[in-house]
Every structure is written in C-alpha cells, then in structure tokens.
C-alpha cells in the first residue's frame, strides 16, 4: 500500500460520514425547495419556483433576524473588546489562561439553561420588580426585542471575546511602546495602533457570532415569547407544525443564501480594509 492510498483510507470513513449526514441532507433541502406541499403535509416532487415566490409570507421573521442579528453582533463586539484588551494586554500572564478559559467555558454549556436563567432575571419578579420597588414605575422586559437582544449578547459574548483576544495577544507589544516613546498619547496609540491591528480578530468574532445568530431559535422563543420570532422559529413552525416541507426548504435555502452573501461581502470588505488576514478559529 502506498502512502497515498493509506492517506485516502484514513480519510474515507469521515468523508463517507459527511457525505451521508451533511451533503445528502443539504441536497435534499435544496431539491425539496422546488417541490410542492402534499395534501397531508410532507413533499410532492415537482419543479416550481412557487415556494420562493411565496417567501414574502415570512417577511417579518427575516426582518426580525436581519435587524436583531447585526444589532446583537455589534453590541457583543462593543462589550467584548475592552475585556479582550484587558486580558491580552494588561493581564499578568500567570492569570491569562484561567481568565480566558472562564470566558470561553459558558459558550460550550447549554444555551437552553443559560437562556432559561434570563426568564428569571427579566421576568416579573426579577429586574422589573426591583425597578418598581425603587418607584420608577412598571416596566415589561421579558417578551420584548430588548430581552432577545440581552439573551443574544449573553449567549454569544464568549465567542466574540476569543478571536479578539487572540489578535490582541499576538500583537507585538513593542509597537505600543514605540508609539508612546514617539510621544503619542495613550488614546492615540490605542486608536491608531491597537485597533487597526486587531481588526482581523474583530472581523472573525463578528462573523462567527452573526452566522450563529442568523439560525437562532431558542433565545427568541424563550425570551421573545412568540412575539419576537426569527427565521429559526419560522422553520420550526413550518416543519413541525404545518408540515410544509417544500416551503420550509425554500425558507432554509433563503437563509443559507443570505448568510453566504452577507459573509462573502463582509469578508471582501474586511480584506480591503486590512490586507493581512487572520486564520479563522472556532474556539
């Protein structure tokens, strides 16, 4: 057996797995999106663009997603940057690892349970009760777009901190010293040296968070209470309640297309802004 054959043999099981469990299912969704709904739900083979023509019926879901996903990404970035900066530039190396791990770890725990916690905090007996006790009147927090936004920022903050941290950590600290030696005030150093050099990390973080937000389902359901719904919620409704597979597939394809287009345009923009690119890391 040659080295070449051996390599292929090693890759083959994983390749087969991806073929059956990823490529096949996505192809099925694509094919079904041109089909028709069966009388009792499900799918009837056809070739029609009817499902795509029907997409405006779910306009609100797309609108909510396309407003709250970028907003949530921006909010997470503004909160994450100072923390990443503090961790990368100002923290004793002895503590760096553990502090970073403490930021990343919540991301890998159940988003279901973490969102559930906010039902308490934003619900009637949580913050609204506190505000009322202070005599500031009655406020509704849960089941509003604001609650969804908080849930989003909370859920995806760790994913934003990590890439920004990496880019700031790799930054040559001597550049900062050089800048201040040459008489630049700290703020000028920050905005003219630190920020431009950390753009790859910021871009990676924003992209990761934005992509995940586009498919979000649990946070709008639990914290938006059915009033603020995303494309993900529309998909669940179409596949599990009304069993309209053809239309649901068209919605899913549209979601992926929007994601691909935004991400491609965004990457181009970032690449133009900054020629050196950072490698994408999932953690």
């Amino acid at each position: 057996m040659t080295q070449r054959e051996r390599n292929w043999l090693l890759v083959a099981p994983a390749a087969g797995w991806f073929l059956v469990m990823l490529v096949l299912p996505l192809s099925v969704v694509f094919i079904f999106s041109f089909g028709e709904r069966g009388a009792a739900g499900g799918y009837v083979p056809a070739f029609t663009f009817e499902q795509y023509a029907n997409l405006p019926a779910r306009f609100t879901a797309f609108q909510n997603t396309l407003i709250l996903a970028p907003l949530g990404t921006l909010a997470a970035m503004l909160i994450a940057y100072p923390l990443a900066y503090q961790l990368a530039v100002r923290t004793d190396p002895k503590w760096k690892t553990i502090l970073l791990v403490l930021v990343i770890v919540p991301f890998w725990t159940s988003i279901l349970i973490r969102s559930y916690a906010w039902i308490y905090i934003l619900g009637g007996r949580g913050i609204p009760a506190l505000i009322e006790a202070m005599g500031l009147g009655d406020v509704q927090l849960i089941y509003t777009p604001f609650a969804v936004l908080i849930g989003i920022v909370y859920g995806y903050l760790p994913l934003m901190v990590f890439p920004i941290y990496v880019s700031l950590d790799r930054l040559d600290k001597r550049l900062l010293e050089a800048s201040s030696d040459l008489g630049a005030p700290p703020l000028a150093t920050f905005f003219k040296v630190t920020v431009p050099l950390s753009i790859p990390g910021v871009a990676t973080g924003c992209m990761l968070v934005f992509i995940l937000l586009m498919g979000e389902f649990l946070i709008p359901l639990l914290l938006g209470g059915g009033k603020v719904f995303f494309v993900g919620n529309a998909l669940v409704d179409l596949f599990l309640q009304s069993r309209n597979w053809a239309f649901g597939s068209a919605v899913a394809v549209m979601l992926i297309v929007i994601m691909l287009v935004t991400v491609t345009v965004y990457m181009r923009l970032i690449a133009r802004l900054h020629t050196s690119r950072d490698d994408v890391s999932v953690m």
């Binding site: 991806f18 299912p25 996505l26 099925v28 969704v29 992509i211 498919g215 979000e216 669940v236 649901g248």
Partner: peptide
Amino acid sequence: FDAVIYIAVMIPGIVIGIATLIALVT
C-alpha cells in the same frame, strides 16, 4: 474536504437538524 468541514461548522444547527430529518425520513 476543507469546504465540507467549513460548511459543517458554519451551517446553523437548526438547518442541520431539519435537513437531516427530512433526508433520513425520505
């Protein structure tokens, strides 16, 4: 292969769930 791995990580979980459901049921 790299593209497939990239897609696996990037496609929203909800789409993977739905796609797997309708493909396997079919």
